[in-house]
């Protein structure tokens, strides 16, 4: 089984995790259209993406960098780690 490196629990079987959607920020001061976009729409990119993942047993959220074509998990980040990288970008 494919394994995923959880920043809190180390390598675990991927069946212990729940996919949580594309990483993006909540819209601020936005219109209903922006909200619809946030709630329903996706980039659904073929390639390298950043996503929310969740370790189900320990209720732990984190961010993973994944290749949606080759089915490889490239890196995982704690939320704090990822947000600081995002800020610097």
């Amino acid at each position: 089984m494919k394994r995923l490196l959880c920043p809190a629990n180390g390598y675990r079987n991927i069946s212990e995790f729940t996919y949580g959607g594309e990483y993006r920020l909540e819209p601020v001061n936005s219109s209903e259209r922006d909200w619809a976009d946030f709630v329903y729409f996706d980039d659904n990119a073929a390639g390298i993406v950043f996503e929310w993942w969740y370790h189900t047993a320990t209720s732990y959220w984190f961010v993973a960098q994944r290749n949606t074509v080759s089915d490889e998990i490239i890196r995982t980040y704690t939320v704090a780690e990822f947000e600081s990288i995002e800020r610097d970008r």
Binding site: Y40, D43, N44, A45, A46
Partner: peptide, 16 residues
């Protein structure tokens, strides 16, 4: 679907 739509600049509520 999302890849073609993106070529036309359209976002879709779809995950593959």
């Amino acid at each position: 679907s999302s890849l073609l739509a993106q070529m036309a600049g359209i976002r879709l509520p779809i995950k593959t």
